[in-house]
Every structure is written in structure tokens, then in C-alpha cells.
Nucleic acid binder design. Sequence first.
DNA 1: TGCCTCAATCTGGTATGGAAGATTGCGGCG
DNA 2: CGCCGCAATCTTCCATACCAGATTGAGGCA
Lengths: 228, 228
Amino acid sequence: MTTLSPTPTFLDETNAERIVAVLREDIVRLTLKPGDPVSESETALRFGVSRQPVREALIRLSQLGLVNVRARKATRVVPISEKAVLDARFVREALEVEIMRRAAQMATPGWDRELRLLLGSQEEAVAAQDLSAFHALDEAFHRKIAELAGVGFVWDLIDAQKAQLDRVRFMTLDSNLALSLEEHKAITAAILAGDGAKAEGVLRKHLGKITTHLATGRQRFPDYFVSR
Amino acid sequence: MTTLSPTPTFLDETNAERIVAVLREDIVRLTLKPGDPVSESETALRFGVSRQPVREALIRLSQLGLVNVRARKATRVVPISEKAVLDARFVREALEVEIMRRAAQMATPGWDRELRLLLGSQEEAVAAQDLSAFHALDEAFHRKIAELAGVGFVWDLIDAQKAQLDRVRFMTLDSNLALSLEEHKAITAAILAGDGAKAEGVLRKHLGKITTHLATGRQRFPDYFVSR
DNA sequence: TGCCTCAATCTGGTATGGAAGATTGCGGCG
DNA sequence: CGCCGCAATCTTCCATACCAGATTGAGGCA
């Protein structure tokens, strides 16, 4: 039974916001499976609140494309759609390519330390084969580059897209951490060298892996996908 | 007094959705000015509904970055922030550059007719100096390219960003329609010729105009902007 | 057996009232 | 005159009740 943290009442965080965070995690990690119904009243019971904050959380999640809310029809976790995933990839790639270009232009020697720090932590995660740690560090790495390039805001958008992509990633439990780390290193080197085109090329390949994950994921969990 | 269309009840469109559309337009067209309070109860009275659908509309608008909803503080139209506008431009440019590249790669002779049709309508709007018609056609043109490139979905994201940009545009009443039309023609030609780099170049310049609008807008309406 | 009908029960959308924190303005005091 | 405190009034957030359409399942009929 998930209950809302009664103690911290973190700043002014509202119930609805906490519910969004929990449900989003449930959906991305496939605890709530694609197609599962997410009833307002049941969810309200689960969190020990009324329907209202749940309802508002679902509105937010629907804007993230994670649930499908229609009048007088059951709200459901949206099935994974190949098109939606590829669209999300398109958006992420477009945004992050531009970030890479900008980062390569702006790079200063001072960046070296910050990036190598993150790469070091990734080394450890790879050595320990700690998937979830690496996943978190992966995100931190990409976000850090955006922040260094002065467009940290953009990462919030990418994060929204990533929800679609992460569901696929969690289906396949992408495990080639060493390769990802190598690509991160290549990206870092290209940026520090001011070679935007190189960074762009590596990034596109880096992100392209989602297509193979998509195929294997679809094979392993066909009923998580929208029929076509 | 704005009242909700009582007749159509368009499909299953909900009150909250209609309110979103109206308020968004009010904000983008500066009928609701940056900093203006948008009270739940007053807005409910205005639309002749209860506070609940208004509240949900405000949640959606806050996710679009148009209003600022905080617990127990007055909800207000977010002031225009130079950074937010430039961020929105960054996002739009990144996405649309990628669309242009893709469009140039995929272009077929069949596209010619569709695009020239829109350009023709724009000619008329320019001749009539009909700003709002041109504005609508401008959006239709960019959206059409995205659709032709098979990524119409992406335009929904751009549309969300455009809300920030359009507020500035409405402040300055950008009137150099002829120049915009010329750029549209250049973009069309580049795409049909398969010259992605050329299309990208023109587009970047096309979108770059926002910076001058930002300057003049800030000069004319300083109190619409966030202080810094 | 198979299908059709209808009622019980589900769904999300809306209305309303109350609660607690924020804001505001007035009145008293130094 | 200026400042402080408090009460009236605002705000959003949440709980509860009700509504109409959708779904479902059981029962009756052919």
C-alpha cells in the first residue's frame, strides 16, 4: 500500500504533485502496465485522499502522454506505440543535437573536471553492473551538458519525452553499460575539443539504440503495445 | 462577457478544455496581461461554471508555462521573461531545424503543389496587409512542412512553445509580412531542391527575428516583463 | 444453445462547502 | 506622523455529493 509521505510535507508540495511523481514512476517502471486502468476512486483509496487531487494528477499525466483520460471511459495507461516512441526519439534527438552543438561551441577547460567526475561515477556503476545507478548517472550526464550549455531548461522537455523511451528501456533492461559509457566518453571528448559535428554524430548513434530495444521489447511484451 | 458556447458541445469536449482554449488565446493576445491575476472564482463566474473546471484549466495552462499556480497564492499570468522567450526559441529552432533536414531529404515533386497553395494564400494576405490572416497562414505553413515530413506530432510541441513567442509577437505587431513571405518561399525552394542545409540556414534567420521583437517589446511594455 | 434486453454498477465531469495559509487595510499606540 | 497588530477577506487545495453516459452481467426469450 502506497501512502503519501505524511512527515515531510516538502515545502508547499501538494498532494496532487506527490501523486503525479508516484504514478509516473509506476508507469515508467511498468509497475502499472500499458493498458491497465487507473481508476480515480481506486487511486484515491490507495493514496488515502479524495478523488480530486488524484484527478488533477491524472490530468498532468495525460499531458505527459502517459495516461489516456476520456469522459466517462476508464482512464488507462496508454499502450506503448511504436510511433509515439519514435516521435519521442525524434524530439529528444533534435533537442539534444542542438545542445551538443552549442556545448561544443561554448566549451571551456573548466568543463573537463565536471564531466570527468560524472564519467568516473559511471565507471564504478559499470564495474558493479549496477543498472539503476548507471541509469541515474546517464540522465545526470546528459542533463549536466545541457546545464553547462546554458539550456538546462530544455532538459525538462527531454525528460517528459524520456518517459516514453524509458518504458521501452525498462522492458528490455538495456544492459550494455560499457558501450554507453564509451559513447559518453566520446561525446565528452568531442565537446571539449570543440568538435560539434563529432559530438552530434556520436549522440545520434547513442540515441539510435532505442530502435533495437523497441524491436526486442515488442517481441517480449507484445500486449504492452498498441495493436496496428 | 465570455460565455461557453452552449450550442455545439463539440463532441465530448469538456468545459475545462474550452476554458483552456479561451484563456490561452486571451493570454497570448495580451487581453490578459502578464502579471494579471486569474482567480478561480472570478473566472468561474465569467464562464458560468463552477470553480472545478476552471481549476483544471488553470492546471493545464500552468503546464504550458502561461500561468503560475501556487498554493494559497493568487494565480497570475506569468510575466514575460527574456530567458523563457529565448529558451522557447531554442526549442522551436532545434525542433524545426530537424524537421527541415528531414523534409529536404524526403521531398517529392508532389509537395510542390501543396506548399505553393499555402504560399499563394500568403501572397493575398500580404497584399491585403491582413496581419491575423497571415499569422494563421504562417502557422499553417510551418505545420504543413512538419506533416509532410511525417512528424506532425512535433508541431504540437512547437505550438506549446509558440505561446511564449506569440505574446512577444503580439506586443510588437510584427508587420514585415513581405519579408516573412520571402523567407517562406526560400525555405520551400530549398526543401524541394533537397538542400537541407540551405533550408536550415534560412529558417534560423527566419526565427532569429524574435530577438529584435523582444527588444522593442520590452521597450514598449516594460512592465509586462519580469524584473531582473 | 444463443442472443437480446435491461438494470445495477462502473466511469469521469461538475457543483459546492469548508479549511488553512496569504493578503490587505484599518485602527490603535507610541 | 509612523509603525505595528489584528481582523476581514482573499487565495488555492481538498472533500463530498450528484449527474449522465458507458459497461457489464444476469435473466428471459426464441
